[in-house]
Nucleic acid binder design. Structure first.
Lengths: 245, 245
DNA sequence: GAAAATTTGTCCGTATGTATT
DNA sequence: AAATACATACGGACAAATTTT
């Protein structure tokens, strides 16, 4: 390899930014495709003629952008990504929506409980605060990769036992069917984005600083009665939403 | 103030994480509401009994979450935020949608140009690649705060001069009206999220690591002919989208 | 308006811990 | 078990931006 162009000091652009730009460019050029990894920090530090910590600042920035992912003891891996598409419509179904995009999907029930509806849940489900609801905590995988984790609430009186049914069927649609609700529709969806918290990082196998797409959604039966309120947290670099009007 | 509980070493949780958690909690408790700022790094370092760099790691994490914002020479400010709501529907109008939520909105035209449609623009506008299109670069403000920046493309043959008209009217809807298109509808919207790049940070007054909501949207006239394709980049901590089905 | 003090930003060097190979 | 590689933490120095004097 020919000599590497050194970074420039006192230019008004911090060294770590220059280095981040150079590494980002090298990655997109395919310079590290053989190994799928960035060279070790010590090597990069030598190449750019800076301290290892300066390289670490650059790599931290790239990790935050989702371009690389550092694994202690192994190295810094280059991330490549394709996004799963989630259409949002009146007929939005989580699992069905993935059918053509992933060979294998799973819905794992982390836990379920019966509790009293708080103000937010009560408002979305249009019930009295304090009414019993069933809460489900789930993680959804597509091809062994976690895609989203979520919390759903259901009116307890109408959907008693939905937790265990969901664990077996791995599908809200099927669980509803078992409980006598043959069809339902998506009424409203609210979308925001933020950074991943500790729970997201653990459940979705993300790195600190990762971006999340968050949906708050309410489903109703065909009479317009709310049957489910859910908050889902998607790994933003693995999904996109589409709305067709 | 009574003694501050020191952080604990060798517990398997990094000091900077413990400190970030403590500061986050203090902020939500309102402990710094008088000044709206976190104490200086040197003070925090003394309080927690760690080096200033360790505090900096914690503050960097909080800055990334959008909870604080460091300003060189001033201090580390606490961010408080309310989100503007953008309904996405067949009748989605950017400016109209903000009318009840902001006293004053502006659309600034950064620049416009006529160019040949690339593959992506051609696909969305359903025209031949290479067909002339007009590109508009805009930034939108609500109450003096930038909310989104975007790029829009229009078929040049049909909307000649839209750049200058938009600069005066500050509204796509009005510009369309001037050019003889009295009504239009939102056909499709694609939503993703990612980190802000350098341009976003500058135009939207963000900090590095900020989260963006990105929409790719296509509008058609009432006959279903595409009239606009746009990519908009929203500061995620200032907006949310809602979809009513 | 200029100088000083304050506060965050960058960079280096070193040491040690932890996870993986 | 040893080597490798990233993670954490400390200490110091100086730069840059802002506020205060």
């Amino acid at each position: 390899m020919a000599g590497i162009k050194q970074v420039q000091r006192q230019t008004g652009v911090a060294l770590w930014r220059q280095i981040a730009d150079r590494i980002r460019e090298a990655i997109s050029r395919g310079a590290y495709d053989e190994t799928g990894m960035v060279p070790p920090e010590t090597v990069l530090a030598l190449q750019f003629g800076v301290n290892r910590h300066t390289v670490r600042s650059a790599l931290a920035a790239l990790a935050q952008e989702g371009i690389v992912r550092a694994v202690q003891g192994r190295g810094t891996l280059i991330e490549r990504k394709e996004r799963l598409n989630f259409p949002i419509s009146r007929r939005t179904r989580f699992t069905d929506g993935l059918r053509d995009q992933a060979r294998e999907t799973h819905a794992i029930l982390l836990g379920h409980a019966e509790e009293a509806a708080d103000a937010e849940v009560a408002r979305w489900l249009r019930i009295e605060q304090g009414t019993p609801v069933i809460r489900l905590e789930t993680v959804r995988d597509a091809d062994k990769r976690p895609v989203a984790r979520g919390t759903s609430w259901f009116p307890a009186a109408r959907f008693a036992g939905i937790g265990e049914i969901y664990r077996k069927t791995e599908s809200i649609t099927k669980a509803f069917a078992v409980l006598g609700l043959s069809d339902y529709v998506r009424a409203t969806t609210e979308i925001t984005a933020t950074h991943a918290d500790a729970g997201d990082i653990a459940d979705l196998e993300l790195t600190p600083g990762a971006v999340l797409l968050i949906t708050k959604a309410m489903n109703t039966d065909l009479e317009g009665v709310p049957v489910q309120y859910s908050i889902s947290r998607f790994a933003a670099d693995r999904v996109q939403f589409t709305i067709e009007n």
